[in-house]
């Protein structure tokens, strides 16, 4: 039995192409046997509120980017349509809030106007000289200290957990490894064990779930054991699929890894996996 896919993007995310489709993603989810899926559209800010921590930190803007707001009205219409058309599937609404610790007021304002079922917290960018920069660019900047940048990323993630209660699930907590210079196979988890454990400790202490992301390189059993040893209780599965056919990708394998790390299905097929 496959778990829900708690991290899916559709045409309502700014970084999906013309083939993205919320309804097609639902059709694919039914096809592969998923019980549920959450459309967690990107919630990234290019301008922000004076009350946001980003302002207090002196952040002025991002580097030129394509981030766009979510069309919440059409999104709500389409979620409703998906629920109507796929009654065998549980369809959740959601957002993936980027850097929610920096944009607490803006995230809150968005959710007040357009409440959702699921909120993921993500760290895609780091402040550099007063501007936010995507870490997938930053890692390839000339002369960059790659290991130092990764440590800085994980440290910032601890701050994100401690300063934001807006999200329920921590998404792809080692996002930069997707873009590791020289190839993702050269990334060594053990180099960052101490920083991973700090993230896991903070997350477990806040009672939230850790996402196993199947777009990122699949984690080792050992890494998930670190999470368990630090008190981690809940695991969420997320494909992070930006195209319908990627929904539920590699879930069979991910389930095996999570199981070997000591987690089991929750109280029903819609629940997170638990220790």
């Amino acid at each position: 039995m496959l778990p829900p896919d708690n991290h899916v993007h559709s045409e309502f995310s700014w970084d999906t192409g013309p083939r993205a489709s919320l309804l097609r993603a639902c059709a694919h989810a039914v096809e592969v046997g998923l019980p549920a899926l959450a459309f967690t559209e990107h919630l990234d800010f290019t301008v922000w509120d004076a009350a946001d921590r980003a302002t207090a930190q002196g952040l002025k803007d991002r580097h030129p980017a394509n981030q766009l707001p979510i069309d919440v009205d059409l999104y709500a219409e389409t979620i409703w349509e998906a629920r109507e058309r796929f009654p065998q599937l549980r369809v959740w609404s959601g957002v993936e809030a980027g850097e929610p610790h920096l944009f607490g007021a803006s995230v809150a304002a968005h959710l007040q106007a357009a409440p959702v079922d699921r909120v993921l917290g993500s760290l895609h960018s780091l402040p550099v000289d007063g501007r936010l920069m995507g870490v997938n660019r930053l890692l390839h900047a000339p002369g960059i200290d790659v290991v130092g940048t990764m440590r800085r990323y994980l440290t910032e993630m601890v701050a994100m957990i401690e300063h934001s209660d807006a999200f329920q699930v921590l998404a792809h907590c080692d996002f930069p490894r997707r873009y590791w210079p020289g190839g993702r196979d050269r990334y060594v988890e053990a180099v960052f064990e101490e920083q991973y454990r700090e993230v896991f400790r903070a997350l477990a202490g806040s009672g939230r779930a850790l996402e196993v992301n199947t777009t990122s390189p699949l984690w080792s059993v050992e890494l998930l054991r670190w999470y368990r040893e630090e008190g981690g209780d809940a695991v969420s599965f997320g494909s992070d699929g930006h195209q319908p056919h990627l929904v539920g990708q590699l879930f069979e394998l991910a389930v095996d890894v999570v199981e070997q790390a000591g987690f089991r299905p929750g109280r029903d097929r819609f629940d997170f996996w638990r220790r």
């Binding site: 970084d15 980027g98 960018s125 920069m133 995507g134 997938n136 390839h140």
Partner: peptide, 17 residues
């Protein structure tokens, strides 16, 4: 000076990457 531009996606495939 190096001019940066944010990636076109937070997903894996990015036009420059």
């Amino acid at each position: 000076p190096v001019t940066y531009r944010e990636p076109d996606t937070w997903s894996v495939a990015d036009e420059e990457d």
